[in-house]
Amino acid sequence: MAQAVNASKNLPSDPRNRETVRPAGNNPQDGNLETPINSSPLVKWFINNLPAYRPGLTPFRRGLEVGMAHGYLLFGPFSKLGPLRDASNANLAGLLGSVGLVVILTACLSLYANSNPSKALASVTVPNPPIDAFTSGESWNNFGSAFLIGGIGGAVTAYFLTGNLGLFQGLLG
């Protein structure tokens, strides 16, 4: 029994554990761990190319890109999996549902912007967060208004593409 307790105390000193998960910057009190996922070059490259972390973008442009992606991707589940999926106006219901959710998300962004959010902290994946992004309530409000415009535009684009799918198939086939 005493050997089992001693073996569990020695678990962190096992060299195999230090190969996979280790404290960031060798500081165990930082509360940030480097894992094979968050410290891999591929994941760092992907995260740093997202609109929220890409350097040189204005908050309005960041919000526009994020909103377009959300509006476009929210349309599908509302139109194809919603309660009106078998109705003749399923695409219109999907458009209205996705626009409604984008409006709700924009209201949540506005509430967050007015709560005096703190500045972004450096992490293992994003060691240098952009200085010009999300630094004030005004930049958050610009992000939120562009998110609304982009989200509605993305949902309308998805609605247009889905409604005219036969036309596009005829052009390509």
Rank of each mutant, 00 (worst) to 15 (best):
L84E: 11
L148I: 01
P129G: 04
L33Y: 13
V124C: 02
S110A: 09
L11M: 04
G137H: 01
R16G: 03
G150S: 05
A4W: 11
T135G: 13
S115N: 07
G82K: 04
L11S: 01
I47G: 07
V21I: 15
N141I: 00
T20N: 02
S115K: 01
L84H: 10
V103M: 11
N27Y: 07
F60P: 00
I37V: 14
G166F: 03
R54G: 01
W45M: 12
G163Y: 03
N116Y: 02
V124E: 08
R61L: 10
N128R: 15
A69Q: 12
T157I: 06
I131T: 15
G71C: 04
G154F: 03
S13Q: 13
Y53F: 13
P12K: 13
A2M: 05
E65Y: 14
G100E: 06
N91Q: 10
T135V: 08
T125V: 13
L73F: 15
S88C: 01
G137I: 02
P51R: 15
P130C: 02
F46N: 02
T106G: 03
L121I: 12
F160K: 00
Q169L: 10
A146Q: 05
A7L: 10
P12N: 11
Y72D: 04
I152C: 06
G31F: 11
F160H: 01
P130L: 03
R18W: 05
V124Q: 05
L109R: 02
G144W: 14
A146T: 03
V102C: 07
G153F: 02
A2F: 06
R54V: 04
T58V: 06
P83E: 12
